[in-house]
Amino acid sequence: MWSDNRKDDGDKLKDARKKNFSGPHPLGERERLFDIGVRDQPEDSALDANELTQLMAAMRPRLHRYCTRMMGSAFDGEDVVQETLSNAVAACSAAGEILHPESWLLAIAHHAALDALRRRKRQGHQESDEALANLTDHGAQADARVAATASLAMFLHLSVVQRSCVVLADVLGYSLTETAAILSVSVPSVKAALHRGRGRLRELVGVSDAALPRLAEADLERLRAYAERFNARDFDALRDLLAEEVRLDLVSRARLAGRKDVSVYFTRYAESIGCSLSLGWAEHRPVLLATDPVVADAGVAYVILLDWTDDDRIIAIRDFRFAPYVMESLTVQRL
């Protein structure tokens, strides 16, 4: 569950780009297959699962950058990334050669994000789909800087197609043709969506986010006590806080359920010297900010989320230690 053997993502991606992968297009629509480089013909050779694993590991930070901005949340974006990878594994179990695996995987991520947005709407959330007036274009480089500095919440003010195009073109650096292929739309449609989406982001940049909500004193004290016990290495006390049905998501590494299995989580941290926790706020909820020299030399290395029962037992732990790419899209404040 716990290992710090890391390979440079750039090296992984270079290796993965040399491979072809088998599997049907996630949409199951024949007319779109060649748009993203998928041959609709079975191959004699079976899919190499190790190559797919390598591709997914190398692409995961890029997938997160895309899904995060589609969802307007680094945490929800990671949920979509996990769904994307699960869908990719299922799709690759069938025959068919994929000529452009990066585009194929991003197409799966795009549709996973659309599914998540539809679920969000059904749950009562609303996405902005307003008509925008034509705005003067200030150049691709300037627009890329605007998109890179825009907060996640700002992307939710763009329609879904505008959001997709701006993230692919201005954040991830894909060409108009590549963006059109991934989204299965025309290049003129991409240009129009970019024009309107970039204009809307320029209007929003500089608008301050909502003020930091006030955390209830009881919630603050509960988090503070957890951090103090963690920093004192009193992990037995933390184990005592676990509910019987507690769930652990060690993002990008492992998932465990049940008090007995999750208790191992603290054993691993007991062996990790130098890691300490403090209180913070991110995406409208309290978080634990981890300083960990194994993961990052300075500053907040990653965050940990805790959910509690009504009787102050820990019901869920979501630890981003092995997903440091999340911090790129996450704005945190210390409490």
Rank of each mutant, 00 (worst) to 15 (best):
V80A: 01
A16R: 01
A270I: 07
L156E: 05
L223I: 02
N50S: 14
H125M: 13
D143S: 08
D35G: 00
L279F: 05
A91V: 06
A91P: 01
H100G: 03
L47V: 11
G173K: 04
D312A: 13
R39K: 10
S186L: 11
A180M: 08
M70V: 08
R6D: 13
D76S: 12
D79P: 04
L135K: 12
R122P: 00
P213M: 14
A211L: 13
R285L: 12
E127P: 02
A192H: 08
Y66I: 00
T331K: 13
L105G: 01
V38W: 09
L238G: 11
A113I: 10
A232G: 01
M70H: 05
S252E: 05
H138R: 12
D40Q: 12
D15F: 08
F322Q: 06
F230W: 05
R6V: 13
G23R: 02
R118I: 11
H111G: 09
Q54G: 12
G77R: 05
D76C: 03
L220A: 15
E78W: 07
T68H: 02
V190G: 03
S329C: 10
Y226D: 03
L201C: 07
A282I: 01
V171R: 11
I317P: 00
I182H: 02
E102W: 04
E203V: 00
A16C: 13
G280L: 04
D129G: 06
N134D: 12
L99C: 08
G37M: 11
I98N: 04
V303K: 01
R17V: 05
A225R: 09
P286Y: 06
H138D: 15
W308Y: 14
R198H: 07
N87Y: 12
V160N: 02
R198W: 01
A211F: 06
S186C: 09
I108E: 00
R253A: 15
